[in-house]
Each structure stands twice: as C-alpha cells, then as structure tokens.
Design a protein around this nucleic acid. Structure first.
Length: 221
DNA sequence: ATGATTTGACCCAA
DNA sequence: TTGGGTCAAATCAT
C-alpha cells in the first residue's frame, strides 16, 4: 500500500516530468517565440519543490491544486484487495501497462473493451468495484484519443454511492466530483483541463450522465 | 480459491 | 443494419 504522501509526490514528479517534456518539445520545434516557457519552468520547479517538501517534512503542505484527500497513485495493475472507493481526483498519471488506466482514487473493474468506429483506439469500460455489493452505478470509459503525446479521455458516468471510501465522504445524495487541474492550460493548451470543477448531482436527474471528460495526457514519459 | 481481466456475444437505440 | 454499451464465460494473476 502506497501512502498518500507517496501519491502526491508521484503526481508532482509526473507533472514536472510532463512539463519538462513539453519544454523539450517546444525547444525542439523552436516554438519558444510563440509560447512562453516560463510557466513550464515554474511548474517544473514547483513540482520538485513539492516533492522535496514531502521528503523533508512529515507533514507536507497540502497541494494547492487539490482539495480532496486522495491523489492518483501508480498502483500495480492488479490491486484487487485495495479499498479505494471514494476518492475523487483525476490526475496526471502515467501507467506503463499497455492499457493505461489512470488511478483516480476509485476502485474500478474493467468490464468491457470495444473498438470504436471513429477512433483507431479501443475504448475501455470500467465500473465501480462495489457495483454489486453496494449498488454503486458509477462507470467510466477510457479511450486513447491521441498518440503522441498519448492522450486519454476519461468519461465518468453515474455516481458513486459506495461507502468503502478513504478520506472523502462520498455518501451524500448530491455528488461533488472534483478534478485536479493536471497542467495549466497556458502550459498545455491541447489539454482539456478541469480545474476544481464541481458537479452537483440532483436526485431528480435520472439520467445524470456526468460526461465529465478529462483528457489525460501522458506526455512522452 | 478467489478475484480481475479478456473478449466474443448479445442487446438496443439510431 | 450498424455501432456503442454491457454481459458473461474463459482465462489469468495472486
């Protein structure tokens, strides 16, 4: 089991690495005249500072981009024993497995995979691990939408009603889902960022497709 | 043995 | 009829 601090450190490292790669691409393509490199550099430095703070301090500062308890973490592809349902954040996370599945703090079980007509990539379907046990109807779809750098679109549908949560209370009838800003838009304009977006789920909405799509970029890691 | 993933089949809406 | 979403048996991993 990886600690929460490790999750945040990993996330910060990946963010910094992603920005470094973006900077590299900009430099290689001589695009520094059109795009400021300063935000990239600052983000990289901030990432390292954050990681160092985790190492130095037993009580690391709360990362400013996150308001919920759990950050993504690089879990092994199979973590069947984990009880993770309840975390909210969708973060920049790289998985070396052939089928990247960014851990957003929920426990998901894959139940299908389809080739999509309009896309050369397959779409994977996941549902909450506790869908049966607790009648949790949360599902998500993950589809690669871009090759280089690899960009994955995750679409969340339904809401978590499972109670096996860590940290965040997810049992309310109204659902607040928050996504971390992965990388600032000025840094990666191609990335659809959702900065602390809050979606309130009303009970009257029966077909409450959240359709919160977040393009997750695993830039050249 | 148990739980997760894979994958072809099936269902249904457009 | 076609394509997207889900089911469920087979397979795999622990």
């Amino acid at each position: 089991m990886v600690s929460n601090i490790d999750h945040k450190a990993m996330e910060a490292l990946l963010r910094g690495q992603g920005c470094a790669n973006s900077l590299k691409i900009l430099l290689e393509n001589c695009e520094i005249s059109s795009v400021s490199t300063e935000p990239l550099i600052n983000t990289i430095l901030d990432s390292f500072s954050l990681v160092l703070s985790f190492v130095d301090s037993p009580n690391p500062p709360i990362y400013h981009e996150s308001s919920s308890e759990n950050m993504a973490r690089p879990t092994p592809r199979r973590s069947s024993k984990e009880k993770l349902c309840g975390a909210q954040d969708l973060v920049n996370y790289r998985d070396d497995s052939p089928t990247p599945c960014p851990n957003d703090g929920f426990a998901w079980r894959k139940y299908g995979q389809k080739t999509i007509k309009t896309s050369p990539h397959q779409r994977c379907y996941y549902r909450c691990t506790y869908a049966k046990d607790q009648n949790c109807n949360a599902t998500k779809r993950v589809q690669k939408i871009k090759d280089n750098p690899p960009v994955y679109r995750t679409t969340y549908m339904g809401k978590h009603v499972c109670t096996d949560s860590v940290g965040h209370d997810d049992t309310h009838s109204s659902k607040m889902i928050q996504f971390d800003q992965v990388v600032s838009e000025s840094i990666m304009p191609q990335l659809t960022t959702i900065d602390h977006q809050v979606i309130t789920m009303e009970d009257k909405v029966t077909d409450y497709i959240m359709n919160q799509e977040c393009d997750i970029i695993f830039g050249g890691l």
